[in-house]
């Protein structure tokens, strides 16, 4: 039987452009963002609800909210 996949809004941080300032990490209401070794921010997809707060606050404006199949 085929499993049905649904589309959910999730945030993604492009690692190479991230300045690791921590704005998204501090603003995330779900604690879904982790700072990795002071180099970039990483979104835990399972916790992300796609609210877009991180995307709005990101000073570099690099965080995108996109629909992904989960």
């Amino acid at each position: 039987m085929q499993t049905r996949k649904s589309l959910r809004r999730k945030a993604t941080v492009p690692q190479a452009q991230c300045v690791a300032c921590g704005c998204c990490f501090n603003t995330c209401p779900k604690g879904a963002i982790e700072m990795i070794k002071g180099v970039y921010a990483s979104v835990e997809e399972a916790l992300c609800v796609g609210c877009g707060l991180c995307s709005g606050i990101c000073p570099a404006s690099i965080i995108k909210i996109a629909e992904v199949a989960v």
């Binding site: 300045v19 690791a20 300032c21 070794k37 002071g38 180099v39 606050i57 000073p59 570099a60």
Partner: peptide, 28 residues
């Protein structure tokens, strides 16, 4: 002009500490 913490993007201390962290992460 831009986002409240736009300074963080080009802050020299931030850039420098990120470079140090990158070097440390690579070494590890």
């Amino acid at each position: 002009l831009y986002k409240p913490r736009s300074w963080c993007v080009y802050c020299p201390m931030g850039t420098m500490t990120q470079l140090i962290c990158q070097a440390k992460a690579k070494k590890a």
